[in-house]
Design a protein around this nucleic acid. Sequence first.
DNA 1: TTGTAAGCGTTATCAC
DNA 2: GTGATAACGCTTACAA
Lengths: 337, 337
Amino acid sequence: MITIYDIAKKANVSAMTVSRVINNTGKISEATRKRVKQVMEELHYVPNSTARSLVLQKTMMLSLLITDITNPFFTTVARGAEDTARKFGYKMLFGNSDEDYTKESEYVDSIVSTRVDGVLFAPAGDGSLDHLTRLQKHRIPFVILDREVPGIESDLVLGDSKEGARRLVEHLLQLGHRRIALVNGSPDVSTARLRQQGYADALKLADIPYDDELVVHISYRDFRDDGALDRLLGLERPPTAIFAANNVLAVGMIRALRERGLRVPDDVSVVCFDDLGLASVLDPFLTVAAQPAYQFGALGVQMLLERIEAGPELQRRTIMLPSELMLRSSVRPLADA
Amino acid sequence: MITIYDIAKKANVSAMTVSRVINNTGKISEATRKRVKQVMEELHYVPNSTARSLVLQKTMMLSLLITDITNPFFTTVARGAEDTARKFGYKMLFGNSDEDYTKESEYVDSIVSTRVDGVLFAPAGDGSLDHLTRLQKHRIPFVILDREVPGIESDLVLGDSKEGARRLVEHLLQLGHRRIALVNGSPDVSTARLRQQGYADALKLADIPYDDELVVHISYRDFRDDGALDRLLGLERPPTAIFAANNVLAVGMIRALRERGLRVPDDVSVVCFDDLGLASVLDPFLTVAAQPAYQFGALGVQMLLERIEAGPELQRRTIMLPSELMLRSSVRPLADA
DNA sequence: TTGTAAGCGTTATCAC
DNA sequence: GTGATAACGCTTACAA
């Protein structure tokens, strides 16, 4: 491996001078600078950032931890994060927790050991508390993405889960639906709780009693659970509409409905949180509350870099990003409203 | 930051003993081992992998470079790669080139400087030659994913582009289509050339003349180019079917067709390479040659680790993964076959 | 079984 | 302007 000493020797200077040329620090005569640069080119020298990290105590590396790389919402978040990190000269260490606390914990170990400069962290759920506390103990700055974790104070980039949910449900109500099911993520996740609140709020405003039978919980990552749907369809008064708390759940419900010979929206209407990426281009069908996923990532990295710069003195900040209602064709008005 | 010296002092041993306990090397009495472990727990010690990397000349980090994080094919590749890397204790540095040679070049700089142990590299195209040569110069092992680059000899994980294309086109021919358009990626990309060959082979076998007018090139990442479709539709004898060389192009074509009031498959049939992720679950509509994306990533990392282990002596290997024809409903038989 | 010394490739500090 | 030296946190080689 070529080091600054190899360069130094060949250019007849000290290693220190080479270092100065590389970093553009200190005073250097134009002549030696040129000579050193020349030799660096010749030998294809590339600085060893491991060595640099060790002495500088800075890795120029951020970590991005998401919960579902299969979900277009998160891949778009990743894209925003990655673009922004690159723009500022940071590398991106990537992790996918699959909403699995064990995996998440392993990633935190790895993150701490790697001494990344900061972490963009989409928590698996409330049980991520320990992991985030561990980061705090090691003074690794982080910004939490998408989900709050009770007990953790930090910078946050969140969506307007409650508000978005309320608007989706109100949309269904306006079209005459009265039996609206909520297919939700785990109550262990803050967004699931908030979306449920939004759902309940909308019903309350419309003077419709909240019916526990209409609310089921699956994992945000599961599009294969048919039991939930069967339970809903088996009710004495089955729902005429389903509010799925995220895009993956919605896809699962629609698939299951179709497999049972039911049509969307003719037999059952469906709406959900988060857009679908390519699927929405292919067929703009599903009515959704679309979150600005790219912004989640981009603003998250921006906040993170500011936090790294400023240290813990800086006041904690929360960015709340609104979602946009995309009215498409997965909902039909109910004739006998 | 807590170092082995802090542990050593508090446990009344030398740093070396601490190192031995951490790495389970050398002989250590059970008593001291216990004492050292105890202190490490107390102080929440985590080894500094930067320091370790510097002395070991090994970062335990792989780099994954893909061309389109928006494409479900590549996110699934990433998932396979990530899972496998983690299983073997490797971290994953992530990059998204967007098929942009400039971005790709920047990533290669970053990769070389970071001294990752190996790279899983999906090249932007033939122009990636320089970048791969640069990796070779620095003796960084890599496995090329999805696309061959003329002039580079390396381990490879490829799909059966030619064969898959041929089968897709033969499927269309069997159903009576004679005017079949090819909407292809850039000829700068090996898969685009091979898919074109497969297309041509199928036509030849069926004694149908190859018609240059029916072949257009767009970027594999572009689902917004409407000009291509308009050109095809404007032909004296427009196509009755479109073979899109990847999923993104297919989505773009279908969108554009629908915007022009044309229906798939009633007016035009569409098939493509690569499946669509969630969109295919939501609505198994598009007939595709599905590639085993997860395997691309998983086997790629496996090959890469073997290469890292074995060094350049090991014979180069190519894994060719077959694709699976998924017959769905985006194709209709032509009555007047 | 444990410890000492040197070195991984870089930069900060101080001296010339 | 330029250079010598120590330090970043760890492990290898050798000594005790």
